[in-house]
């Protein structure tokens, strides 16, 4: 069962952060807040921070899946869990890239 969790965790976290950031975008558009931070509109800063957090989370997971004391014991489970770990990281970078690429709330 632990191996199953190792295999599922990274994409599961991707799904959670992906939905959360989509929700955050909807929330920011629905209840517009004004202001700037670091010379950028506050919406962009919040979305960017969430994006960064999601990336860091996935990197940490991947690190854990490669760490000898946390990795799966069987070779097969190690391979699959690391592969899905990479899926989580790449999916985060790819699917949430619009945070820094596109216009928000239009």
């Amino acid at each position: 069962m632990r191996d199953i969790i190792r295999i599922l965790i990274a994409p599961l976290v991707w799904l959670a952060t992906f939905s959360a950031i989509y929700g955050l975008h909807g929330l920011l558009c629905g209840h517009g807040i004004n202001g700037t931070a670091f010379g950028l509109p506050i919406e962009r800063v919040l979305l960017g921070a969430a994006f960064l957090f999601a990336i860091l989370l996935q990197t940490a997971l991947l690190f854990a899946l490669y760490h000898p004391s946390l990795a799966a014991s069987s070779e097969f489970s190690r391979f699959v869990s690391r592969a899905t770990g990479w899926v989580g990281l790449v999916a985060t970078l790819w699917s949430l890239s619009p945070v820094v690429l596109t216009t928000y709330c239009v």
Binding site: F18, A91, W94, L96, P98, T102, Y104, V106
Partner: peptide, 19 residues
């Protein structure tokens, strides 16, 4: 839905073609 919202799902939809 605003363009950024669509873009998330457009990106994810292209990515699913990889596996």
């Amino acid at each position: 839905i605003p363009h950024m919202g669509l873009a998330f799902f457009s990106a994810a939809s292209t990515l699913v073609a990889v596996p």
